[in-house]
Design a protein around this nucleic acid. Structure first.
Lengths: 195, 195
DNA sequence: CGTCTATTTGAATGTACTCAAAAGCGGTGG
DNA sequence: CCACCGCTTTTGAGTACATTCAAATAGACG
């Protein structure tokens, strides 16, 4: 199984020997998804933590009124899970599904716990990765409180440079925290100003 | 030095022997703050990660217009830091200061790294704590996108049950993401509805 | 009591929202 | 090749909610 992208991703955080990486590799499963395929349905238990090898997922929640809100996108090289559900084996609040044909690498909870015991270095890896995710989310949270929809739109483009023309705009709106109509109007204003 | 609260806090996540805890305890410093004392000034490097033994801190950022936005409060039993700054030793975006007379226990970066090496179990502790912080922030982020100011206000009261009458309302507004005038009007509406 | 800070209230403004309809776009089948 | 269909985006009009700015009130502390 080709796992180069995963290996390079891990190498950004910690150094691993071949055998340590292979140990990890033996615990992950590849999962192929078509556009719109659902990897996690809200209410189910999230039995995996995953890494996107190709394609793109959205991690979202649906509010009582039926609107979706996207917590983050997971294009290639991103990790994802409903951590709350994964860790406590409780029903997920979040949903995860594919916005494009996607290949994800999944590890289940028991395997991950075993990994921590057998190769303690992975405890460090996941601590560092979780820390980075927390920092990123803190920035996003501050952006949501302090910035205008337009600034948040530019932040989105900076954060996901390749994504804008790969996915429908209503998903971008669901990430920004505005309605699709509002994003449409914002974009019109921006292009009007530029010309 | 009395460290019971810290010890009980850690015990919620992992089991520690007396000597393991004492090892940790030997690395923390107690810091006493008056109301309005600043623990971290934006632009400085955050040289500590901390735990609140008594009192309350706010962790906030100031936008270009001069308005503050509170990322979270840290009353007794909470951990805090500008992780981004702490980990990378870069200038902090966040500020941290005391809303009440406060006692904080601080550990610096070098001590924490040493701790990870000498007692690897702490790698696990901080992974778990960071994970929990991430889950909490995910919920807050979704709330910011999906909920009304009034619902967020009720969430605040649930999350910090003792805080409402300990701190000025404009700090609560800065946490909710609204102006103080708006929170004032919200509260009036709520009490009007109840009577 | 007076001063400083915090909260409340009012009026006008702005930004995003809802609902509804039209236009654009891509793919399929006649 | 064109007509039609479904889905997405755009546009319009009216509304809701939070904002700004300004002023009045309320509390806390010396």
């Amino acid at each position: 199984m080709e796992l180069d992208r995963l290996r390079r991703n891990i190498a950004k955080h910690i150094a691993l020997s071949d055998s340590e990486f292979l140990h990890f590799a033996s615990l992950v499963q590849r999962r192929r998804l078509q556009r719109r395929d659902r990897l996690l349905i809200p209410g189910e238990v999230c039995r995996f933590e995953g890494f996107v090898d190709a394609g793109c997922l959205r991690v979202y929640c649906t509010d009582p009124g039926g609107s979706d809100h996207i917590l983050y996108f997971a294009p290639e090289d991103w990790w994802f899970a409903d951590i709350q559900s994964f860790v406590s084996e409780s029903p997920a609040d979040l949903g995860i599904d594919a916005l494009e044909p996607t290949e994800a690498l999944l590890i289940d909870r028991a395997s991950k716990e075993r990994l921590y015991i057998e190769v303690p270095k992975f405890e460090r890896l996941f601590r560092i990765m979780t820390q980075r995710a927390l920092v990123a989310l803190e920035r996003r949270m501050i952006g949501a409180m302090a910035k205008s929809a337009e600034e948040r739109y530019f932040d989105f483009k900076r954060r996901y440079p390749t994504l804008e023309d790969r996915i429908p705009q209503y998903h971008i709106a669901a990430y920004l925290g505005v309605r699709p109509e509002c994003l449409s109007r914002l974009r019109r204003q921006i292009t009007a100003r530029e010309s």
